[in-house]
Design a protein around this nucleic acid. Structure first.
Length: 443
RNA sequence: GACCCCAUCGUCUAGUUUGGUCAGGACUCGAGCUUUUCAAGCUCGCAACACCGGUUCAAAUCCGGUUGGGGUCGCCA
């Protein structure tokens, strides 16, 4: 029975890289029918915040990653202290003020990484540094190794130590974490050895980079999972995109459910190279989901966003929203785009900017607009078909080309020169708004 | 700087384990079809094995080096 963990620190929101690490742990655990542990690494009493922890928990839930066990490092300080003291008693560590430091020994270490294979370290490279960056040397002139802090002066455990004690005592079998942790793995291996613990298997995931090739940062796009949620990405789409970063289900498949990915997941197939996060591709993946999603489900997803924009209130018309969603499916990649394109449906008075007006609306169309609105206003059954029929009659009466009037009318009704079919748009808008906007535009 | 990791189209990747069938898919971009505009869809196109050497009948694949990128070097996690 395998056991893996995701160990975020509640000193910030759950970021996209962390979510990807969690996801790979989750997939591995589920594929192996193991146990998934969430460990809150809140040893930094000053920077750890309850609101961050809540945000992390909420994001995990939103992404659909349920855990089986949860631990808080802040509640285990005695445990760390105890093991540190044990090392002091054995002469493998020593006290310095209130802190406890682990004696670093010079040795060669072999790490077998599940993703990268064998990695060799020589701890004699782990030398202490002076403030100017130079290596500390002893009286004989040989480099001095840097001892590892186990317990800090304030009594809290250092990251590496708490991590080792926790992984060992929680019986974590697989440590799957970011590549940035490769360097402290040898130190941790020494601690396992000193404590007499059996080390887990390690797998170091490649990092996710920003589009500029550097570290993922706010500058290169949103980093918090909650930001993506706020922007209106579907959780299943984000998950789908994330699992494609550094892993592939094979057979050129890209759109894949989490369950299906789990059934195909293999840690051996994880890439070694870092991957650049592409907003374009995420948007495309998201669009694939919105396009094929059940209209009612999509409406449920949209309602909170529409409410926030005050486009609808609690008494909104469900069936109308379903209609709107069906009309716009495949026409937007994320919710913001949807909101921009459909605003004219929900607001009372639209604004047509000067450029749009100059491009499409000419004063000599005034009479055609008047005739069209008169004819539409007397329709008993105002829908897509009757609107189109009326429109075509007017056009032929005036000896106009249909396409010559379609665009101006669209602009008059929506304020945009893009959108779905004009008659569907009229239908969605309803007779009153359609007629009103046709008359208003040339006043 | 030291140590460690990595290297296929601009980006995500398949192919590397087991050398030949190999350079494929997707995003982006461009062209066309469709059309009432925009999307979507369909068709087509642009575009890569970082470099140098070695092994071999044969190298994207194995080996060495170079270059480039990334990570780590906190009483942060």
């Amino acid at each position: 029975m395998i056991k893996a963990r995701f160990a975020p620190s509640p000193t910030g929101y759950l970021h996209i890289g962390g979510a990807r690490t969690a996801l790979f742990n989750f997939m591995y655990v589920k594929a192996q029918k193991g146990t998934f542990v969430l460990r809150i690494e809140d040893t930094d009493q000053v920077r750890s915040k309850k609101e961050y922890e809540e945000e992390i928990l909420a994001s995990m839930k939103w992404l659909g990653m349920d855990f089986d066990e949860i631990f808080y490092q802040s509640k285990r300080f005695d445990l760390y202290q105890g093991y540190a003291q044990k090392l002091v008693d054995q002469g493998k560590a020593y006290k310095q003020d209130n802190a406890i430091l682990f004696k670093m020994e010079s040795c060669e270490l072999k790490l077998y990484d599940l993703i990268r294979g064998e990695i060799n370290f020589d701890t004699s490279n782990f030398t202490a540094r002076n403030e100017d960056g130079s290596t500390v040397v002893d009286a004989a002139g040989s480099p001095v190794l840097k001892d590892e802090v186990l317990i800090k002066n304030d009594g809290s455990p250092a990251y590496s130590f708490a991590c080792v004690i926790d992984d060992a005592t929680m019986e974590i079998t697989h440590v799957i974490r970011g590549e940035d942790h490769i360097s402290n793995t040898p130190k941790q291996m020494m601690m396992y050895e000193a404590l007499g613990f059996k080390p887990p298997k390690f797998a170091h995931l490649p990092l996710i980079m920003g589009e500029d090739g550097g570290r993922l940062s706010k500058r290169t796009g949103a980093v918090a999972v909650s930001d993506y949620k706020a922007q209106g990405f579907l959780p299943e789409a984000l998950v789908n995109y994330l699992l494609l970063l550094g892993w592939s289900p094979g057979n050129n498949q890209e759109i894949i459910s989490l369950d299906s990915a789990i059934s195909k997941f293999s840690i051996k197939k994880i890439n070694k190279a870092a991957a650049v996060f592409s907003m374009d591709k995420l948007r495309w993946v998201n669009a694939q989901y919105t396009k094929t999603m059940d209209a009612q489900k999509l409406v449920d997803f949209l309602v909170p966003f529409l409410k926030e924009k005050e486009y609808i209130n609690d008494t909104f018309d469900q069936s109308k929203l379903v209609k709107v969603v069906n009309l716009y499916k495949g026409r937007f990649a994320d919710i913001n785009e949807f909101l921009e394109r459909t605003d004219f449906i929900f607001i009372e008075d639209i604004v047509i900017d000067e450029e749009m007006r100059a491009k499409h609306l000419l004063d000599n169309q005034k009479s055609a607009f008047k005739l069209l609105s008169d004819r539409l206003s007397i329709l008993d059954n105002f829908d897509t078909l009757s609107a189109e029929k009326t429109f075509r009659e007017v056009v032929s009466e005036l000896s106009l080309e249909a396409s010559g009037l379609v665009h101006p009318v669209r602009v008059a009704l929506t304020g945009k020169d893009i959108g779905p079919g004009l008659f569907e748009t009229m239908d969605i808008l309803g007779k009153d708004k359609t007629v009103k906007r046709l008359l208003k535009v040339f006043k």
